[in-house]
Design a protein around this nucleic acid. Structure first.
Length: 592
DNA sequence: TTAGGGTTAG
């Protein structure tokens, strides 16, 4: 403030341009916006800004360092003329302070006044660039100014395209690059991975490994690819990456190990994840959280809690994600009291503010305990953060279980308000009415769905066999081995009935009599996939299935009994978790 | 002359 006042005194009212520039150049500390604007107005009024490029340059330097995110500079730039335009060096320091669109308009203004900017200007502009049209404009500039040989600049451009979700543009820049280093490859991989082009991502690894260039995958490449395998559930490929990492000396990198732990748990291989975890000497909070979340998602709730306690004993402090893991362990395994204990611990002992995901777990737990109205009150009155669609969906799921029709209707209205309702939500509401036996309402919702052209996602189960995916939908008749599969399923059904399996008829929505419902349940996609796996897979190998929706209660019971009668380990990954069926049991308790 | 920019763990 003292400096600002000194400057004002030096410049008001009759300071010469050189005195003004001198005073401005002498200032080293930032000025408040108010003083800066006063100063600017004065410099304009007295003509200093027009008469002295040195003073203008000095002024913008001070302004740039004073105002980190400066809308005012965007206004100021319109007063620039060719004579008052600061040097490119100074312009770049102004560019660094502007928002994405203001910086672009400033660059255009510079060009209008005959100043082109340089590679530094483009580097500054590309850093915050997150808009496709801006990326395209900057791309044109990079080409026109002949900077395509600058590999850092080109990589920066690829990164912007990656953020904008246009993989093909990033690839084009990559293909035109003269020197493609590992970072450029990694940025391209990130781009494909972000845009869910997972298979292309995996191809790039092969291309990199087998290519003739010197560039080989490094630890960052391994991390990126492991993440891609995680999202794809590609166990075999994930293991190849892990082998590569170990062979090339990246096996001890903590970030790589943490990614491997996640990859294994997300592919349902908890034991292998645990092996890697145990052999990791310096476990960070990320390592512990990855293991805790992995155990939770696979239904090993008690083990997740033990891991949390061991982590605390070892002196590692939990963070928000650790609590997400341990709370979801409690909710997936139905450990209601434990869940509330951890929720209190995070709030009162660790003084953490719960986020939407933490509340989501608590709402799920309350739903399990039948505390539906209390859960609704919590969401509406106590939550410090705005509830998202997932929270409402969780509560809607609990309404279905308990047949709480009134609350279900209230919850769906919140989803509609959020404009977030999906076909699955209407199905949940439909199920709620079905659970309450209100077939008239079921028909009403069906009509509503038809009128609004709401398409439901058909349940689909996949089995991987020798790298090939076999897909099944309910009552599927498309598989070439259809007759054998249906025959096998009938045989399995007979055996399971003897062992005590009884179809869970309310799992089906149709308003049929009990016998009709049994028929409709018989050929659900999971059951067809299990019959197929039994036909084609060698004995002792675990049967791994992936289901796009939630496993229904009847299929859950069916698979549980199946795992005991046929002595097979069945691992099912559905939309939210893993189910490990073994010896007539499942890793998740009281599944609804 | 000065100044600038790219990838990475749960």
């Amino acid at each position: 403030m003292a400096l600002a006042s000194h400057l004002s005194q030096a410049l008001f009212p009759a300071a010469s341009p050189s005195a003004a520039a001198g005073a401005l150049l002498a200032s080293t500390s930032p000025l408040p916006v108010r003083h800066l604007l006063q100063l600017h107005a004065h410099l304009l009024r007295t003509g200093v800004l027009l008469l002295s490029p040195t003073a203008a340059s000095a002024f913008f330097s001070v302004a740039a360092s004073s105002l980190p995110s400066l809308r005012a500079l965007a206004v100021l730039q319109h007063h620039l003329t060719a004579a008052s335009l600061p040097s490119t060096f100074c312009c770049n320091s102004i560019l660094r302070c502007l928002s994405e669109s203001d910086a672009l308009s400033f660059l255009r203004r510079m060009r209008t006044l005959g100043r082109r900017g340089n590679a530094f200007s483009l580097a500054i502009l590309l850093k915050p660039c997150r808009t496709l049209s801006h990326a395209r404009q900057l791309h044109a500039n990079v080409v026109i100014e002949g900077h395509l040989r600058d590999s850092l600049l080109a990589t920066s451009l690829m990164r912007s395209y990656a953020i904008c979700g246009v993989g093909d543009c990033a690839r084009k820049v990559f293909d035109e690059m003269v020197m493609k280093d590992t970072v450029a490859w990694n940025v391209l991989i990130t781009c494909y991975a972000r845009n869910k082009r997972t298979k292309d991502t995996l191809w790039l690894f092969d291309e990199m490994r087998r290519g003739e260039s010197e560039v080989k995958p490094d630890e960052v490449t391994c991390i990126l690819l492991l993440q891609a395998c995680t999202s794809l559930g590609a166990l075999d490929f994930g293991e190849q990456i892990w082998e590569y990492a170990v062979e090339h000396g990246y096996g001890c990198e903590l970030k790589v190990r943490n990614s491997v732990i996640t990859m294994y748990t997300r592919c349902g291989c908890v034991e292998k994840a645990y092996q890697v975890f145990c052999h990791t000497p310096q476990k960070s909070v990320v390592t512990w959280s990855a293991m805790i979340m992995g155990l939770a998602a696979n239904g090993f709730g008690e083990d997740a809690i033990s891991a949390f306690e061991e982590m605390s004993r070892s002196g590692v402090v939990p963070d928000g994600q650790t609590f997400t893991g341990v709370l979801s362990a409690c909710s997936h395994s139905g450990l209601v009291d434990e869940g509330f204990r951890f929720f209190d611990m995070m709030r009162y002992e660790y003084k953490m503010m719960p986020n939407v995901r933490h509340y989501g777990c608590i709402v799920d737990l309350m739903g399990r305990a039948g505390l539906l109205d209390e859960a609704y009150e919590l969401v509406v009155k106590e939550m410090k953060v705005a509830p998202d669609a997932t929270i409402w969906r969780t509560l809607l799921g609990a309404c279905r279980i308990h047949g709480h029709v009134d609350l279900g209707e209230k919850v769906i209205s919140h989803l509609i308000e959020l404009k977030a309702q999906q076909a699955g939500d209407y199905v949940l509401l439909l199920n709620t009415y079905a659970a309450a036996g209100d077939w008239e309402k079921v028909a009403e919702v069906r009509k509503l769905m038809r009128e609004n052209e709401i398409q439901t996602t058909p349940g689909c189960t996949t089995v991987e066999l020798n790298g090939e995916l076999h897909e099944f939908i309910a009552d599927d008749a498309s598989h070439p081995r259809k007759a054998e599969i249906y025959g096998k399923l009938d045989e399995i059904n007979r055996h399971l009935r003897i062992a005590g399996y009884v179809p869970h008829v309310s799992s089906d929505l149709h308003d049929l009599d009990s016998e009709g419902k049994e028929c409709a349940l018989t050929y659900h996609s999971e059951k067809l996939a299990i019959a197929f796996a039994l036909l084609v897979m060698p004995q002792r190998r675990p049967i791994r299935l992936a289901k796009n929706l939630r496993v229904c209660v009847d299929c859950h019971n069916f698979t549980k009994v199946f795992s005991g009668v046929y002595n097979r380990l069945v691992i099912v990954r559905d939309r939210t978790r893993f189910h490990h069926f073994n010896g007539g049991q499942c890793s998740c308790n009281d599944y609804w």
